[in-house]
């Protein structure tokens, strides 16, 4: 009797949980998750002549990711242009992750080892760029690296170079830009991991004859590894799907996957290919996030 009443109360609570969540779910289903299913469908259709699709099952969208059809003889061959875009996306994303880690780790360590009263301020200084409009930060870095920008002006003024460095509209520009805009995404999870790190372990390390490098390699890095994985994925994922930064700093030529997808919905008028590319990007990102979730649950499950 009592358990019956309990069950009833329990199911009432579950019902109210769902009821209260329903409005949010409707909005999300309508304007976030639901449309993704349409993308899946579109990737299997025939491209329309003026964009959009013809409702006709077709695998050419998926095949078109790696191959392109010769306009004259209609044969399929490996699409070098596509491959170079994928390679650039992966290469630039990995380099962005490496650079942000190389400078982000010392920064996070520096913040975490400040006296508690100062720490919040340093952290706030990292957080402001984090929440500042990505486009504005891209414009700001553009101001620095373009041909008549701050960097060239200063370098010419002090006489290091006589003609401006042509960084803008190159892969290097995109790389600098992405490292700049995604750096806070690396520093914040690293900080969180280092903040949890028990500094007394350092004393134990030095007490047991480790040098500073050994303490870093043998004690600090293994213990903050979950934070390193988190930061790397948080940087790698948006880098791979970047759109604004390569568009502004890469010019029209140095496209990444994001710009390539846009192209299919614009000038190229190949919606199924664009849909298939989007799904591919989504799958890669989801795989990366799975690694992230695994790493973070392992950390959140300390034995004993």
């Amino acid at each position: 009797m009592a358990s019956n009443a309990e069950e009833k109360a329990e199911s009432a609570r579950t019902r109210s949980a769902w009821l209260l969540s329903t409005p949010a779910l409707i909005v999300l289903l309508f304007a976030a998750s639901g449309p993704l299913l349409i993308v899946v469908t579109y990737s299997f259709l025939t491209p329309g002549q003026y964009g959009n699709v013809v409702w006709n099952f077709d695998l050419s969208g998926w095949v078109g990711i790696l191959f392109s059809k010769d306009i004259f003889d209609g044969t399929w061959h490996l699409a070098d242009a596509h491959l170079s875009i994928f390679w650039r996306s992966v290469k630039l994303s990995l380099l962005t992750t490496a650079i942000t880690f190389a400078v982000g780790f010392p920064t996070a360590w520096f913040i975490a080892t400040r006296p508690p009263t100062q720490r919040a301020l340093w952290l706030f200084l990292i957080t402001i760029p984090f929440w500042t409009n990505l486009l504005i930060r891209t414009i700001a870095i553009n101001e620095v690296i373009r041909n008549e920008g701050l960097l060239n002006t200063v370098l010419i003024w002090i006489g290091v170079i006589s003609t401006p460095l042509h960084i803008i509209y190159t892969d290097t520009a995109v790389l600098i830009g992405m490292a700049y805009v995604y750096l806070p995404l690396m520093v914040l999870p690293l900080y969180a991991a280092i903040d949890r790190f028990d500094m007394r372990l350092l004393e134990a390390g030095y007490d047991l004859y480790a040098s500073r490098i050994q303490v870093l390699r043998r004690v600090i890095l293994p213990i903050v590894k979950p934070g390193i994985i988190a930061g790397s994925i948080l940087v790698f994922v948006p880098s791979l799907g970047a759109y604004v930064t390569p568009r502004v700093l890469g010019g029209g030529k140095n496209m990444m996957i994001g710009n390539f997808i846009e192209l299919q919905f614009g000038q190229a008028r190949n919606w199924p290919l664009g849909a298939a590319l989007s799904m591919t990007l989504l799958i890669v990102v989801m795989a990366a996030l799975l690694v992230y979730v695994k790493a973070s649950t392992r950390e959140g499950n300390p034995h004993g």
């Binding site: 449309p35 993704l36 997808i261 919905f265 919606w271 990007l281 989504l282």
Partner: peptide, 15 residues
């Protein structure tokens, strides 16, 4: 937070 913005953008464009 998980789906790349460009993917959501494309999906919404189509829809």
């Amino acid at each position: 937070l998980m789906v790349p913005e460009i993917v959501t953008a494309v999906a919404l464009l189509i829809f």
